[in-house]
Design a binder for these strands. Sequence first.
RNA 1: GUGGUUGUAGCUCAGCUGGUUAGAGCGCCUGAUUGUGGUUCAGGAGGUCGUCGGUUCGAAACCGAUCUUCCACCCCA
Length: 456
Amino acid sequence: MAQKPSIPKGTRDFLPFQVNRRDYIYNTIKGVFKKFGFAPIETPSFELSSTLMGKYGEEGDRLIFRILNSGEKVKKADLKSLEEGNLPRFANSISEKALRYDLTVPFARFVVQHQNELTFPFKRYQIQPVWRADRPQKGRYQEFYQCDADVVGSDSLLFEIDFIQIFDEVLTKLNIPDFSIKINNRKVLSGIAEITGEEDKIIPITVAIDKLDKIGEEGVVKELKEKGISDQAIKMISPLFSLTGDNKRMISFMKDFLSDSLIGSKGIEELEYVFEKTNLFGLQRAKLEFDVTLARGLNYYTGAIFEVKANGVQMGSICGGGRYDDLTGLFGMNGLSGVGISFGADRIYDVLTELELFPEDISQNLDVLFVNFGEKETQFCLPIVKKLRDNGISVELYPDATKLKKQFKYADDRNVKYTAIFGESEIAKNQVTLKNMATGEQTSVKVDEIIKSLTK
RNA sequence: GUGGUUGUAGCUCAGCUGGUUAGAGCGCCUGAUUGUGGUUCAGGAGGUCGUCGGUUCGAAACCGAUCUUCCACCCCA
């Protein structure tokens, strides 16, 4: 018996209307990337394990999909390591490849490998699927697409400003009514750790305060204590919990707060620059917000950190990004600063669905359907069909001369704009009857004028 | 990775403390309407109750395993 077919957890099939909607998102993003001077690249869906492992922290390693060695190669299995409980070593003995976990690390590898073929600063965009062995939830899949734009080879803050505009422009074009671009700076976070005398605990500190809006001040204090942060340090940090007001005010507060920290002051200076320059031209719909509690991608970000949230929708962040000063250093090429952003296309899809923001016409795959009346009428139809197609109009002639009810229902299901009726009586008058499927209105047009009336 | 949750027709869901032939709405197909879809009416098809095993005279229901869904952690797009 045929078993019920299924697909692995956290993966999805896409129906035509869904692919149309996804393409609409990708094309919008691509258009803006191109406008800002980014060029496309692609990298393999899987990399050598050694390229990926250890680049995302311990958590990340756990979530990387490994590819089992093929055929005879599994014989290399290091059974001794398995017995000794050394699972990473055992895994490496049977797997030397892994599915791409994000687009940033493969990009760093790409830049190092092709450094002599690239012109710096090198700006690329890349839209490809990535895989994570995470437990699926709503808006979290094991296979999903990332749409990244990065620039390497420049530490100019002008790129941070460009990326803010890219976020703004893409999401405005997609018609998302209300969204916030949150920005912070890793140097500010370092500064906080420094002035509290807990420099080595920067990660636990920032991870804890990142949860402020979720678990509240008490929760954060509790977590800080659990991580072994001194009471004195917690007391110093606590003013940050109630930091509110406009960006200018928060920044000036942080400026004082971090005045004893060189690195912290540098972070504030960078933020000030970005805000000041962005204010010169303004943004369309985005709210640009400084958020000290924002702490993402700490494993490699060194400067700006971005996160974008759609307001009024229950959904995690829809975009992220930041600056990483030495990503290519991991592959032996030092001193190249990079900054980049990523659009979470799948989440944007869910937001657009929830807010009903997809345009109607993107699910339209067929402009005209010709009714099939039989062999004789087909003779007259085919040249017209050809002519319409040559003019960029998508046309089908129904494959069988079945009853009209069925043909019209097919046209309806296909969401066709016009049904063309070219039967005996029309042929006699050298006219075609065009039925507008949305309004039900029928008009007779001369055969020579079909294209004119369809393209107006 | 930890704790929980879900699975019955294409879809959304009923189905009582285990008891004949498992239901509804929507969708689908056929006809009313042999040159007209979206409305209406009449009829029809469609289910090894996620899968495997166990308990029982008897399981959609109880137990176990497994897969899947969603949720909270962890982390993250």
